[in-house]
Each structure stands twice: as structure tokens, then as C-alpha cells.
Design a protein around this nucleic acid. Structure first.
Lengths: 231, 231
DNA sequence: CGCATGGTTGAGAGGTCTCAAGAAAGGTGG
DNA sequence: CCACCTTTCTTGAGACCTCTCAACCATGCG
């Protein structure tokens, strides 16, 4: 149950998202739509093919890019939210051992395989979106390398809130966090148990409120202070 | 003292490097050279401007991309070695808070600001090189998130050896590692002290030999086993 | 010789992990 | 609507990895 917040995050979340990276004209949107193809649904847990598959937009649901070590340890590289483009650049595509996994039931829209968006504004917006994703990976490196569990969690929660806000999936400081703590652990480079303790601590400190998968940021200044990273 | 190994890593290391990402014709090299400009030298520790400066190739010396937290903690995102391109994509350029720092005395060659390599093979090679750098950042995320100090070190040493081998800066399993342990610490998300202990341990285990800044990988199978990451 | 820099080592503190068990929540069939 | 089962969350206890502080050693250089 992905719940109500999906109202206007329907088929066009990628437009909302791309628009943030450059204003479009009607013709741009037409060119974009012309190259988009079939819509597909996947269940949570499904492995999405990256190599040998056309690029796609996420319409609804959460996914992630991840890499696993031989002994089963897994590191999530990035979260993919509705509106995000997946596999358009060879930066993400065809990286050894990187898999895309559906974290919730997913709806995606595939692009034609030889995707070449016409015009000039459209490619620029794609590049900007790729740069934004790259920037988030940089944040991820800093989190994992130099921040404590508490700081990492604060920083990630702020990132997710900001990204969800872009596509209208927040109500004030409140949003739906549809992932298990195990997933947060794999993203933050922590153990499941320590993720739990960290969340409990933040709750006790009054920074967040959590009921089920409903997350509310109660004290943004404190969260920002904790997350440091001037971003 | 960067020492002898620089012989044929001189002015053209970037050609060697780009050639790995696609074979060139004479005309491609000509087009490339035509857009390259002045050579500049910087002392170790110098901050290289990324925004507002033209992109460049590293000719000699090591640099890194890094981001700092307010309290002084610093995380190195990537090492830049001779032949590496810096600032060509907006993926690296114009990321908030990312600085490029010379780790040794540096020689760089700037490109014209509006760099637009002609032809078709050249841009493809640039894209492939960018993808390779992106792949290394993914490795970095996995190292920091899911590997122990010992594993991180093994993995990084193998990465550096492989990259230096591409430009002829290794002799067998031996290479020059011109950076302080403090720098390794900032790259691996560890404390200086623990980097030292980890290196000592690897030496005791017979995996490496270290004399000054001379590094030799004595037991590659063991290093690969320790570094896991199927890369 | 004396200083500065970088490397090495010890000791104790602290953050995070693992193992293990119990509580809560959600779904299913009767 | 309840009993049951599975999944997910929560909590405790002890071990382990890594950090900090602090000192000492090695090297290079003026």
C-alpha cells in the first residue's frame, strides 16, 4: 500500500523532475514523449536489468542502485525515487556489479533504446539531472567516510525529504518512507540494529517522529546541524 | 622528489589514458591537441580552482577531489593521477563544496574553456573516461560503507597499482606512492593512526613491502582476496 | 646540532557490530 | 472476529573495530 501521497506523482513525475533542471517548451515535452514507450510494473524486490535494457523513468515506487560483496554484504549506492531517470548515461549503466532493485512495487516507463532527445534544452536537462545524481553520490561518500551513524541518518533523511518535496510527495515535514530499516542500513553502511538504535535516539531527542512508515522531521534545524555537510 | 618513474609519463599521459577508452586516428589526436592550451605548474597543497576555470589534463603529479565538513573532517572522493582529465564534465565541476587539491607538485595542461572535441571517437572516449571515474567512485562508496580498514586498504592499493600501470608508472608490482598516510586516511575514511596500523599489519602479513614512499605488492592473490569487491 | 615533518606505538575510550531474544505489526485462514 | 504465522522492529549484553590522546622514533634539512 503506497497510500495516498501519490496523487499528482502519477505518470508525469519525470517531467516535474526534469523541469527543475531547465525550463521546457511544449516542443521539448513532445520530443520527450515521442521517445518514451511502454509502462511496466514490477513487484518489490525485483531486480531490474540495467545492461541490455533500455533506459527508463521511474513513475511510482522506490528503487535503488546497489553492489554486493561476495560474502553477502551489500551497499546501496543511491536511492531512486519517482521521476528519476535510470540508465540513460553509461555512467550508471554497465558498471560492473551494479544492480537496480525495486524496493517497493514499481511502475516504470521505458524509453526507446537509442534514446536521443532532440533539441538543446532537453539534453542539457538530462545532463543536469545526471550531475545532481552524481552530487548525491558525493554526499554518500562523505556520509560513509566521515560521518557518525547519527549524522548519516540526519543527512539522508533531509536528502529524501528534499527529493520527495520536488515531486510533491511531502506534506510539510512529513513523508512516507516505504523502506525497511534493513534497507536504510545497507544505504548508510550500518547494521540493522544500529540503524534502529539511531532512529530511537533521534526520536528521543525530538528530531523526528516515526509511526510505521510515516516519517516526520520535527526539528529541522537540529537535523541540519547534525548532518553538517554544508549541502 | 617525484623520482625516476616519470620517464614516459611526460606530456602525453592523457593520450595514453584516453587511448584505453577507444582507439584514435591521427586526426583525433590533432583535434585534441588543437584545443589544448598552456601548461601550468602548482606546488603540493595548492587548491586548484574547479569552477570558473577551464578543464585540464594532469600531466604529472597526484591530486585529489575532496570535500570538507565544517569541523575540519575531510573526505577524499577520488585520486587524480597523471593523464586524468579534470573538470570536463559538469559531473565533477560545479558540485558544491568539492575542491581539487594538489597532493604533490603538479603539472597540468589546460583546455580551451568551451571545450568541444570534434569528431565522434573523441567524445566517446571522454565519456568512457568519465564512466571509469564514476565507477571508481562506486568502488569508493562500497569500500567506505561495507569494508574493514584492511579490506579498504587492499582494494585501494590494487586500484592505484592498476591505474599507474596504465600509464607505465609501475615496475612489476612496485610503484611510487607519493602521499602521506594522512592522505590515505582521508581517502579511506580512517584515522591516520589506524592507517598506519593497517599498513603495518599488511606488512607483517607479507602482503606488501613499504620503504619510504616505495610500495610493492608482494602477494597479489592475498590482496585481491582481502579486497573482495569482484572488480 | 636542532628543528620540522612524517611515521610508529601504547593505552584507554567510544562507536558500532554480532548474537540472541522478545515485542509489535500485518496478513491469512478459519 | 479471532488465532496464528511471518515479517519487522526493539532491546540487551558483550565483543570487536576504530578513534583519540599522547608520546616516542626516524628522517631530512638548514
Amino acid at each position: 500500500m503506497l497510500g495516498a501521497p501519490l496523487q499528482w506523482t502519477g505518470e508525469r513525475s519525470y517531467v516535474v523532475r526534469l523541469r527543475r533542471h531547465g525550463v521546457f517548451q511544449e516542443e521539448d515535452l513532445a520530443a520527450l514523449e515521442a521517445q518514451l514507450g511502454r509502462v511496466e510494473s514490477y513487484p518489490a524486490g525485483k531486480d531490474l536489468a540495467l545492461v541490455g535494457a533500455p533506459p527508463m523513468f521511474l513513475l511510482a515506487g522506490w528503487a535503488c542502485l546497489a553492489r554486493s560483496l561476495r560474502d553477502g554484504r551489500r551497499q546501496i549506492l543511491a536511492f531512486l525515487l519517482p521521476g528519476d531517470a535510470v540508465g540513460f548515461d553509461l555512467l550508471t549503466r554497465s558498471q560492473r556489479g551494479v544492480e537496480a532493485v525495486a524496493l517497493t512495487p514499481l511502475k516504470v516507463r521505458y524509453a526507446q533504446s537509442g534514446f536521443t532527445a532532440g533539441g538543446e534544452r532537453l539534453p542539457r536537462a538530462f545532463a543536469a539531472a545526471a550531475a545532481a545524481q552524481h552530487g548525491r553520490m558525493i554526499d554518500q561518500i562523505v556520509r560513509l567516510g566521515r560521518q557518525t551513524a547519527y549524522e548519516r541518518m540526519a543527512h539522508l533523511l533531509l536528502e529524501l525529504h528534499a527529493r520527495l518535496a520536488e515531486i510533491g510527495e511531502v506534506r510539510g515535514e512529513h513523508f512516507h518512507l516505504p523502506i525497511k530499516q534493513e534497507i536504510l542500513a545497507d544505504a548508510l553502511g550500518l547494521s540493522l540494529v544500529h540503524v534502529n538504535r539511531t532512529l530511537q535516539q533521534m526520536r528521543r531527542d525530538g528530531l523526528i517522529d516515526m509511526r510505521g512508515s510515516q516519517m516526520t522531521l520535527l526539528d529541522r534545524p537540529a537535523l541540519e546541524a547534525a548532518s553538517d555537510q554544508s549541502s
